[in-house]
Design a binder for these strands. Structure first.
Lengths: 200, 200
DNA sequence: CCACGTTGTGTACGGACCGTCCACTCGGGC
DNA sequence: GCCCGAGTGGACGGTCCGTACACAACGTGG
């Protein structure tokens, strides 16, 4: 038996409201995910923690992955900082440092890698992940890059989408395939390289 | 019941040699992995396909992931092409195009993403993956980049390790987080950007 | 004010795998 | 030719999946 999270003692075997049950389940999902990671994330355990029935969960979430991601999004929230100082190098560095900090220093970073990993064998999760996470993230970066192109700070023939992959993708790669440490200097170097080039 | 792969009919319930059993298991593992993917990869199914006992597998491989990866490596083999024309841009492009081709056009690409995904929740697999895959891969790229630095084609203050992540990492990111297609032009643009920079 | 439909709960089920254990049986080394 | 190491079949308890069914509260319409 796992300790239920319901703050107020469950009334008899009564019935919580639609919204309340949903909220309890999502909170339990987020908590389990952040404390024990995706490897221990199980629908049965979420149900037990939320004091809910598995049936209820299966009724509202199509897959384990989608529940996990929604629980993640609910408890973490997405803090997409969008600095715009007019200096693209400065702004990109700020954004990437924030991203590196998230990946390296918070539980959310670990969990994000695990979610992306799980999405490789869970098409459901992959789709939700695209809508919820990578889509918005990419959009924010694209906006900054396109604005810089308008201002003439970035060559007009450069494809902003490619840059996104070279910036954020590089960081995520270090997180998921860690032969090398993910440091602040790495983030700065990534921005510098792609802006100025390394060719002699 | 799954069709056993043993070419020669199993003799009674006799015993194959150490090496033979190992080989049969690895072949079965590789085949299962490439045909059905990591989602369907199960020790019990590998054992059934190889006509072996689960015990034997557990005796030699510490985790499901390590068996999967070794099966993968055995049947795919690693074809690390190392062109060296003296022109770093040309060589990097060649290497990356080969990589993109592997990721996009072969089953091995899909499986590789699934393996890296699984490694996010399987420390065993992560370790083996580092030794078997990402380490060597990085070493090959590093060699090319360092040589180019020696030749004065790349700025001496640029960190080759960072470049690896921006080149290969970017491609892998598109494979695992596919909001955008992984094309040949993408590979070429990635190399171009990081060598020449996109700053106006 | 009371029956009723809606909605969630408890409980149980068959199935798939996991990881482990034991009894048996070959084969090759002595 | 005998014996021990190594592999096999089979079975076990455990966890989790996904689903089914009967029942209990709630709130709403008659």
């Amino acid at each position: 038996m796992v300790t239920p999270i319901a703050a107020s003692p469950r009334r008899g075997r009564g019935r919580r409201s639609h919204a309340q049950v949903r909220a309890d389940i999502l909170e339990a999902a987020g908590r389990l995910l952040l404390t024990e990671g995706m490897g221990a994330f199980t629908i049965e355990r979420v149900a037990a923690m939320a004091g809910a029935s598995k049936m209820t969960i299966y009724k509202w979430w199509p897959s384990k992955g989608s529940l996990a991601l929604e629980g993640y999004a609910t408890t973490i929230g997405s803090t997409l900082t969008v600095p715009d100082t007019g200096d693209i190098e400065r702004d990109l560095t700020t954004q990437l440092l924030t991203y590196v900090h998230l990946l390296r220093d918070t539980r959310a970073g670990r969990v994000l890698a695990e979610l992306i990993g799980a999405a490789q064998t869970d098409a459901q999760l992959a789709a939700v992940l695209h809508h919820t996470y990578s889509g918005p993230r990419r959009a924010v970066g694209l906006a900054a890059l396109r604005a810089a192109q308008q201002r003439g700070q970035i060559r007009p023939d450069a494809d902003p989408d490619v840059l996104i992959d070279q910036l954020w993708g590089a960081c995520l790669y270090r997180q998921m395939m860690p032969d090398q440490p993910l440091t602040d200097d790495f983030a700065r170097a990534v921005v510098r390289n792609v802006l100025h080039g390394v060719r002699e």
